[in-house]
């Protein structure tokens, strides 16, 4: 690891003041479970780390009639054990418990999970976010893309968005709140993610001089939600496909649905096609299958990842059935 400067601001204003206008030279340190690994691998080389863990208002979870406010520094482990989460957002608790190992969950923060860098093996091996070789060959398209995107992959970005928790948060309608030099702003979580077009851009709309302060999840009401991951290993493994589904039901009929896929595109991938396929329907095996087919209709796999289309389809179908209370 390279030498760096270390700052520990006490307020979010101080923190923001320590940040810069470019990605790279300055990095925000929260749980550090991803950042420190990237620094050890020399993929990230920050000259300054801004440790935000002393900022009190970024901690804690508060519940109100409107919903749940989750401080960005809440660890995945604490959030998974939170009584409100367990009661009102059980699919989120499940997603949290499926993420990483207990040791990681006890350190990793929700804000950090939202900002973790892609797991693309070219990126992690130092070939860049939009990896190319010396003569400009696209390493993913022409190389080993077995774990890469099958949707939203027509541009230079072909990695998959790495959070397994975010699809469920989006399905629950979560918003993310950011603090920057000009004050605070709020975004629907799905708008927080963008597909970068150049190596200097990031995978999200956070600016280099902003930090995430909190995530807000509106009250779940009678919403029924589910999270489903397809992993090869039973635990502590990065999934091959993720689906999160939230259903607003009237009796057994779907009034409206949210269907969000993970690990299929450079961003968490809401599927309006699947949502439409569910609206007005009574959930059945066939309805779930039709929605899953709709979600993957536009999939464009590369040479080695067409199996992921099948896996994503199965994940969506099983998440729908699980949300509706059927067999997963």
């Amino acid at each position: 690891m390279r030498a760096f400067e270390y700052a520990t601001p006490q307020t979010k204003e101080q923190a923001v003041g320590l940040l810069g206008t470019k990605w790279g030279p300055i990095a925000v340190l929260a749980g550090g479970t991803d950042l420190l690994a990237l620094m050890k691998d020399d993929v990230e080389q920050p000259k300054r780390l801004v440790n935000i863990k002393d900022i009190k208002e970024l901690h804690g979870v508060t519940s109100s009639a409107q919903g749940l406010r989750i401080g960005a520094l809440t660890t995945l482990g604490d959030l998974a054990d939170n009584a409100n989460v367990l009661q009102d957002y059980p699919a989120l608790a499940e997603a949290l418990n499926d993420a990483a190992s207990p040791q990681i969950r006890n350190l990793a923060t929700l804000g950090g999970n939202l900002c973790q860098r892609p797991r693309c093996w070219y990126f992690r091996n130092g070939f860049g976010l939009l990896p190319k070789d010396k003569v400009g060959k696209d390493l993913v398209a022409e190389g080993d893309n077995r774990f890469h995107a099958i949707l939203g992959n027509s541009g230079p970005a072909k990695f998959v968005s790495p959070s397994t928790i975010v699809p469920t948060l989006i399905a629950y309608g979560a918003k993310v709140r950011l603090a920057g030099p000009k004050g605070n702003r709020e975004l629907p979580l799905e708008k927080f993610y963008v597909i970068p077009k150049t190596d200097t851009e990031r995978e999200h709309d956070l600016r280099p001089n902003e930090i995430i302060t909190e995530v807000f999840i509106p009250a779940a009401g009678g919403m029924r939600a589910a999270h489903y991951e397809i992993r090869q290993k039973a635990a502590f493994d990065w999934p091959l496909a993720v689906a999160a589904v939230a259903l607003n039901l009237s009796g057994s009929k779907v009034l409206s649905a949210r269907v969000v896929l993970g690990y299929v595109a450079p961003v968490p991938w809401p599927s309006p096609e699947a949502e439409q396929a569910l609206a007005g329907k009574v959930i059945s095996e066939d309805v779930a299958k039709a929605a899953a087919d709709a979600a993957l209709q536009k999939a464009q796999p590369f040479t080695h990842n067409s199996y992921k289309v099948q896996l994503a389809r199965v994940a969506v179908k099983r998440a729908i059935l699980k949300a509706a209370g059927g067999a997963a």
Binding site: W121, F127, D133, E142, D144
Partner: peptide, 9 residues
């Protein structure tokens, strides 16, 4: 990796 000749994992 056939292109770079490096181990990917």
């Amino acid at each position: 990796d056939q292109l770079t000749g490096r181990m990917l994992n």
